[in-house]
Nucleic acid binder design. Structure first.
Lengths: 143, 143
DNA sequence: CTTGACTCTATAGCAACTATAACCCCGATC
DNA sequence: GATCGGGGTTATAGTTGCTATAGAGTCAAG
């Protein structure tokens, strides 16, 4: 069995599709159950079969996920991408919102990083009893 | 009834403790079950009662959580904070690791932000059929 | 005909809570 | 004493996006 059998051609089994898209087979099944992919056509023995349509859809999903979008957003984008005549402001909105989301998260994490820097630099002690980190965490500050 | 009844004094009910620490009552119970807090003393009728010891422990937990530490790390820090004679390099290690973690995450998110910026700027179309965002997500690039 | 890789389903687990249901308790009021 | 509101109690399920496991069937090659 040559896993590198050139480019496996249509129709694809789930494993072939997984290799083609970089999405694991279990995850593909999961996406089917989560309604991101339509129920796949089956062989007589029940194996799922896929075409390039599903392959492309799955790649679309994967790109969205790489952008950090949640499955609901991905679902919305999939739906929208089929309505070629519709206005695309909903698409813009999803991307925009995600950007805001990411920006907020970055800000939060940068504050965190500073705090951790401060903490990490603080400890010059040998034992926990003198450790500024533990002290800092124990200090009755706010609330 | 006066929710601002000066400072409620020991012993605290779970709700009072929640107000004092900013940790919700359900979460306090969850922490108990997760072994971050010892099983609380109870009234005759089964209400949990807390003292300033638990209050301080809970504040410690909350600060750790604000640093983004996982409950396992918090648990470790709690354990360590009781061993005042022990060397504190394990404490340092946890904080250091978390800083690395946060830094990595920030880098990832910054890459994401750029990509989202690019996408958001790209769409100058009216309909989805022409939308560069959808196009970009559909484009057969990698894999 | 047996192996080994692949596929199928269903179920449980992860993190760190949050929500729900269904009940009990307590102090205040009527 | 009944009742009411705002507590508290438990157990269980849901969240997100998978991942792991178990137990079984399928398929092509040797």
């Amino acid at each position: 069995m040559n896993r590198a059998c050139a480019t496996s051609s249509e129709p694809y089994t789930i494993g072939q599709l997984a290799r083609l898209t970089g999405v694991k087979a279990v995850t593909i099944r999961y996406y089917e159950k989560a309604d991101l992919l339509p129920a796949a056509r089956r062989t007589a023995s029940g194996y799922r079969l896929y075409s390039s349509v599903e392959r492309d859809r799955l790649r679309f999903i994967r790109r969205c996920r790489h952008l950090g979008l949640g499955l609901d957003d991905v679902k919305a984008l999939l739906r929208l991408s089929d309505e070629r005549e519709a206005p695309c402001h909903q698409v813009d909105a999803i991307i925009h919102q995600q950007r805001e989301h990411v920006r907020d998260r970055i800000r939060d994490l940068q504050a965190l990083e500073q705090e951790l820097d401060r903490l990490e630099g603080a400890c010059r002690a040998e034992t926990i009893g003198e450790c500024k980190i533990i002290e800092s965490l124990s200090r009755p500050t706010e609330r």
